[in-house]
Design a binder for these strands. Structure first.
Lengths: 343, 343
DNA sequence: TATAAAAGTGGAACCGTTACCACTTTTGTA
DNA sequence: TACAAAAGTGGTAACGGTTCCACTTTTATA
């Protein structure tokens, strides 16, 4: 268990000062004669020297690390997002500290505090909803915050990366309208999130555009946590005037909702047409394969990382930015014209 | 963008020396009078002081961070594992730096190097297979390494946490034998991994126990990467004397294999009975629901974290430990007695 | 009551970088 | 040829904790 060489070891071995070595490591931080550089590079390779992240971080007050705060990796959407974020970050020499909140805002608060002592350069997160003060504090000390997929309205000056929520919901709704449905239900995120509201808006305007009355009973803004989506689905099916179609626009609730639907034995699409947000691997494997609104996860990840790394690098306007990427509607077998009303 | 208070600020405000504050922070590192402690604690709360991780890490040479090196979060097995590991670590005050290798050993090598400069206390990984030297180096500098699910034989003195691979494969095979199958194929991990070999062994001995001839054509040790599993499945189906049952024991390849099977249109279980390793959420949603060998992911995670944190804490025997937890066979609809041979 | 041991406290070196400044050597230009 | 500007180099103070050691006060024991 020998210990690693330090910058001083390199300096000594190469017969230069530590300053020079530091300049070699951080290309562009000062002049170094070509011959000297070469010598130092060789020595570094020979000694297998790697600068210690902690020292660097301490000295410059901020390291090449970002925090990724997600709800729960059990959900394929978040999992894929994490996968892409880690990958994109890696390409930029940035490490990712992962934290999960399990949709619990108390846990989230703790995570933020931890991220603070780690002096991360930035945070990419799908916020649970509360903790406005903590988010503010994070920004106060200069940590850049990027929200992906969701965002909370109380917090201003945050970058947000998401799909065009309004349009996507509208497209899905229109698809069902075109098939002849009029009783279309919507399960969306909580209305405290901008995402949740935007999707409801898109749904609303699609209905209104063709003159279909909006029935508030058919709109469910459910929390991300727990089995709220499944329960909403059950409730919707129990309605006297049952919906013939359902859009599940709360990504966190898709899995539980679909499972419940399958368990209940509703015939899809005969009894109920469904469209879910986000294209997971399994949406094609089930019977019937699900029509989905596919979120371009790779783009979401790329933009998030770009934003957070860009701001860390310093040269991005301080103005918060909202990036909206286009989602793609993929029609598969889970939608059809409405059947006769049962029983 | 004000800056955070330091230990010296606290010391000044509380009228004590930094040493005392340090001792208060690190309970048990030295004596502090009750009254003093109380005063310091109050000051810390008042100033909202939190010790900076980087400084601590630099000074003691090792921080409360572990690396988690996984192949790919797109696979639900790894995703769930990550979810649980992060959670377990959090409970112990440890942060997790996540890296993905995409099953590329070159990427893995880079990740290990990075982990090295971050001076993590330990690493939990599903190794790709190569990089024996890098793993050794990591151990040399005192980083504890725990392999989960897979392990590589060239590396000794590593903790390994996995299911009872031999038994699990045997159980699955026996289940198929009991149904009357004799031509049972196996897709397992590469034989360079102990996991891959153990599963083949289990399969073998199950067959031999009942006197069924082992046909090497039916055993495929495929790499974790790419569509190797799917291709193996295709190849198996093209065999003159086609198998009537298949065990997919390479977790990384389950998804791609099953997808291919569905696309091909093989009738399950009529034409082919299948059992896959690991119980993902979607295995119940497909038709027919898949019989699986369920890995207790939470246990795998817990033990891994326990091991790595335990060693960091210092007081675990230096002897490497192998933890094997029991997997559970869950019978669902994807297996039946062999049908007549087609064509 | 003397005296050794334990408890409590403070000072300062150290961990491995970066960054600023001072200094020397080139190089370019009038 | 003289002299200013630029290039190259080294010294050293931060950064914010931990830890060892020395010192002063208690407390316990003979």
């Amino acid at each position: 268990m020998k210990k690693a060489p330090t910058i001083r070891d390199v300096a000594a071995a190469a017969n230069v000062s530590v300053s020079v070595v530091s300049r070699v490591i951080n290309e562009g931080s000062g002049p170094v004669a070509p011959a000297t550089r070469e010598k130092v590079v060789a020595t570094i390779a020979e000694l297998n020297f790697r600068p210690r992240a902690a020292a660097r971080e301490l000295s410059q007050g901020q390291g090449l690390t970002i925090g990724l705060v997600l709800a729960d990796l059990t959900n394929p959407f978040f999992a894929s997002l994490a996968d892409r974020v880690v990958w994109e970050a890696r390409g930029r020499g940035v490490q990712v500290v992962l934290m999960t909140t399990q949709e619990d805002s108390h846990v989230e608060a703790q995570s933020l505090a931890t991220l603070l002592d780690r002096s991360v350069g930035g945070v990419i997160a799908t916020p649970t909803g509360g903790n406005v003060d903590q988010w503010k504090r994070l920004q106060d000390v200069g940590v850049d915050v990027v929200f992906v997929d969701r965002s909370i309205s109380e917090l201003e000056n945050v970058d947000v990366v998401s799909i065009q929520n309004n349009d996507s919901a509208a497209t899905a709704t229109e698809h069902l309208l075109d098939l002849g449905h009029t009783r279309i239900a919507l399960i969306s995120g909580p209305s405290s999130t901008s995402t949740g509201r935007a999707r409801v808006d898109g749904y609303r305007s699609a209905l209104e555009r063709v003159g279909v009355q909006v029935d508030p009973d058919l709109i469910r803004g459910v929390p991300f946590r727990g089995d709220a989506g499944a329960d909403a689905a059950t409730a919707l099916l129990a309605l006297p005037d049952r919906p013939t179609a359902l859009v599940v626009a709360n990504t966190a609730q898709v899995q539980s909702t679909v499972r419940r639907l399958f368990q209940t034995g509703v015939r899809i699409p005969d009894e109920l047409s469904i469209i879910v947000f986000d294209d997971n691997p399994w949406t094609q494997l089930v019977t019937p394969p699900l029509s989905v609104v596919r979120q371009p996860i790779d783009l979401l990840a790329r933009h998030s990382v770009d934003l957070v790394v860009g701001r860390m690098g310093g040269k991005l306007p301080r103005q918060a930015r909202t990036v909206e990427v286009q989602a793609e509607f993929v029609s598969r077998g889970s939608c059809s014209a409405p059947g006769r009303v049962l029983g």
